[in-house]
Amino acid sequence: MTEKLLNHRTEGPTSAPPLLLGPSLGTSYTLWDKVAPELSATHRVVRWDLPGHGGSAADLIGPGASVGDLAGLVLALADSLGVERFAYAGVSLGGAVGLHLAVHHPQRLSSLAVICSSAHFNGSKPWEERAEQVRREGLDRLADNADARWFTPGFTVPRLVRDHRDADPEAYAACCDALAAFDLRDRLDGISVPTLLIAGRQDPATPPAHLREIADAVAGATLIELPGASHLAVAQCPEAVLTALRAHLGRPAPRGMEVRREVLGDAHVDRAQARQTPFTARFQDFISRYAWGEIWTDPTLSRRERSMITLTALVAHGHYDELAMHVRAARRNGLTPEEIGAVLLQTAVYCGVPAANSAFTTAQRVLAEEDDSGE
């Protein structure tokens, strides 16, 4: 019989260092939507759903569950993916899972990032009461107040609120049981992996004092407080969290993967990452950092203008396979077939008629494929 696993999403090349990302109570792995794609430029990113949240089965845990039970599910997931040692980052309950792993399974972690979380969650009574309420009433009333618990006034992420409302009440209550019983304060000084702590200064659930408590106990830990951030800082301040994680993980890179996907499309980038090997990994990293993270993000020229320049350069050097890819990109950047034709016509003057002839053949094929697919 196949073991039932946590629902998860994997991004990035299989040859890259693995990084597991844990969610907070009431959310799914979409919590990491603004951060995970960027981290996948340098890591094999695996983000997972809590039991009864997102796509994970509710019966993975039951009443009286512990954070240790959740950590066991994470290890089972890592084992199923052939991942022995990994970096880990988690938010709130996901951060508690990371602390448990660092204390009880340090040989599995290469580094730890704990975001808007704690070594304890203000005693058992509030969580016991919440679990009882959810088992009795369901999640609608809690979901109605999610924004106040998660974000500063005026900010929301509707998808996350919907995830909260759609979570399984029994599994949610079991996660509350886990938080009620969680307290690692007397074990923190045994954590030896490189540790980053990120606090939201406006976080009412796990205020900065909770993260400072961990920082004071864990040798060499780094603490960062984000102004204007509440409990789900990953969703509210993704750039700041991304910058901190990159520095912590030792692989700093400008923001480029998102732009690369926007211009070239998910399918192309996914294929490129799937083909990546240790031999080509540095080149793929170079493309994401330099071409997409610095040049294509420079606001001096619009993406339309950059597409026109790129088409011309590719025709000039006869790179027709790349030209096909960038004709598709030009369409995503708003160029019409007529404008693409005008660019190629101009290349006939400055790059030569034979080059333009080949370019028109390539572009016509790509545009015909678009018409056939209904794009």
Rank of each mutant, 00 (worst) to 15 (best):
V83S: 12
L109W: 01
M308I: 11
V74W: 00
L242P: 08
I61E: 01
S110H: 09
T312M: 03
A229M: 11
L323E: 10
V74F: 01
E11Y: 11
A181V: 06
D216F: 06
T300C: 03
H210Y: 15
D166E: 14
A313W: 00
L223T: 07
D33Q: 14
P299R: 00
A316H: 03
L264T: 10
A102R: 02
Q133H: 13
E137K: 13
V349F: 15
P106C: 04
T156N: 09
S288R: 06
A240D: 13
N145R: 15
L367W: 04
T10H: 08
F279T: 14
C237G: 03
V45D: 04
V67D: 01
P17M: 11
R332F: 02
K34C: 03
P278D: 12
E262L: 14
E3F: 13
L21K: 12
T152L: 06
R201Q: 08
Y88H: 12
A215H: 14
L70Y: 00
P158T: 12
A221C: 13
V161K: 15
S230T: 05
V161W: 09
P194C: 07
L197I: 15
L6Y: 13
A174I: 05
R85L: 10
Q273K: 12
E129F: 00
R130S: 00
L249F: 14
P299F: 01
C351F: 02
R255E: 12
I340P: 05
G293M: 10
A131F: 02
A363T: 09
R201D: 06
D186Q: 15
G250R: 07
T300E: 09
D298W: 04
T14M: 14
W150C: 08
R85C: 09
P169Q: 12
C351T: 10
E170L: 13
A57V: 02
